[in-house]
């Protein structure tokens, strides 16, 4: 039951990767992903500039950007912060609390959205001037 034959030297330090190849690879991945995000961000800009912005398309692009950002986060944490080298339980003890963000985000965003609807939906019963967004939201570009 209780045996404590522990090897006399337990290493506290993890052995890093033998060379820096992994780090540079992560750097290039991050750079490429950032460029990809940038491209998507600019295409959102161009969709907006167009005569008939497709909201679905914008939403799709934004979703892709979010996923790419999570991937970036993964590389930074796993490679740069050496999380990939930590023990599995330690990793979990860090990642599991972060899962709270799922419900945190859902609840907050849902409620924010619900309040906008509450502000706007009572039209007919009463109106508030400031919510009447001018119809002429033609172009969002503007001269300095």
């Amino acid at each position: 039951m209780s045996s404590f034959e522990v090897p006399s030297q337990i290493t506290i330090h993890h052995e890093p990767a033998p060379n820096t190849k992994r780090i540079w690879r992560a750097f290039w991945i991050l750079s490429v992903v950032t460029l990809g995000e940038l491209a998507l961000g600019l295409s959102i800009y161009n969709i907006h500039k167009g005569p008939n912005p497709s909201e679905m398309m914008v939403l799709f692009f934004k979703g892709v950007i979010c996923i790419l950002t999570l991937a970036k986060g993964y590389y930074i944490a796993w490679v740069f912060m050496h999380m990939g080298d930590e023990s599995k339980l330690f990793r979990r003890s860090i990642v599991v609390p972060l899962l709270l963000f799922i419900w945190f985000i859902i609840a907050f965003l849902h409620d924010g959205n619900a309040y906008r609807e509450a502000r706007d939906s009572n039209a007919g019963e009463f109106k508030v001037i400031k919510n009447d967004v001018p119809a002429a939201v033609l172009e969002r570009g503007q001269k300095d």
């Binding site: 006399s8 030297q9 337990i10 290493t11 506290i12 052995e15």
Partner: peptide, 9 residues
């Protein structure tokens, strides 16, 4: 095991 540092004890 180059940097065996027995910090723990």
């Amino acid at each position: 095991m180059s940097s065996v540092a027995s910090l723990h004890e």
